[in-house]
Design a protein around this nucleic acid. Structure first.
Length: 243
DNA sequence: GCGACAG
DNA sequence: ATCTTGTCGC
């Protein structure tokens, strides 16, 4: 597992963080359809925390998009870079997620985030932010509707309904399992909303959440447990050294 | 002004 | 996100 520092110049206040979002938002690419579902690789990313001990662990798990087999994975550990503030989640997760992606042996392909992209107060959620910083195609698949509204989609798997900010469609409530609460899909970077939903369905043949996020979630939780056992006092000031 | 609010 | 036992069910 690699160790990461909070980047120099990382925003320290909510005001600075919002200004970063307002500036980077213009760099989001929304006129590409993105990779076809079921081909190439798809990478799930997720993060687990221990706020008390100031430890954050990110995981990136690469799946073969056709078989959903795991073909690579990586983790990274760091210190918490920002408090949780609704609308500013990216500043809490991104430094460690970037380190985990960098530690991967190959190309990530499409990146699936646990959270939102376009569906965001300033239309620049975690998935959009990660996409702009890496240049990779990204989507967001969230478990909750955040502040947005939606009409319940039909009961069968595959039905969807617009996720709305007023009358603007910022994403979609997508039913991945019959009779189960939908997931909330939004565009990150270089992927269309239709394609983002198609990917989400292809990644969730059995459970509510995409296999990519289920795998990443399990891995970062396990890695956090192990990191806490090895260093119960929390992370040292200096990055880990190699011998 | 107050409450709600991805993870 | 995280705190947390058992329990119902495939």
């Amino acid at each position: 597992m690699t160790t990461v520092r909070v980047p120099a110049g990382w925003p320290a206040t909510e005001e600075e963080a919002r200004a970063v979002q307002d500036e980077l938002r213009a760099k989001v690419v929304r006129d590409e359809p993105g990779p076809p579902p079921g081909t190439g690789r798809v990478t799930g990313v997720d993060v687990a925390y221990d706020d008390e001990r100031d430890v954050v662990v990110a995981a990136a798990v690469v799946l073969d998009a056709a078989s959903l087999d795991v073909v690579a994975e990586a983790t990274a550990v760091g210190r918490i870079s920002f408090p949780y503030v609704p609308g500013l989640l990216a500043f809490r997760e991104i430094p460690t997620v970037l380190a985990a992606l960098d530690a991967l042996p190959g190309e990530p392909g499409l990146v699936v985030c646990d959270g939102y992209g376009l569906a965001h107060p300033r239309r620049f959620g975690l998935a959009s932010h990660l996409g702009v910083l890496t240049g990779l195609p990204t989507i967001g698949v969230a478990k909750n509707p955040f502040t947005f509204t939606y009409a319940d989609p039909a009961d069968e798997r595959g039905s969807a309904a617009p996720l709305l900010a007023g009358d603007e469609e910022v994403g979609r409530a997508l039913r991945t399992r019959a009779g189960v609460k939908p997931v909330f899909v939004s565009v990150g970077h270089r992927v269309s909303l239709d394609n983002a939903c198609a990917h989400t369905l292809a990644l969730a043949p059995e459970f509510r959440l995409p296999e990519s996020t289920r795998r990443a979630d399990a891995l970062c939780r396990r890695a956090l447990r192990e990191a806490l056992q090895e260093a119960p006092q929390g992370l040292s000031q200096e990055p880990a050294t190699r011998h």
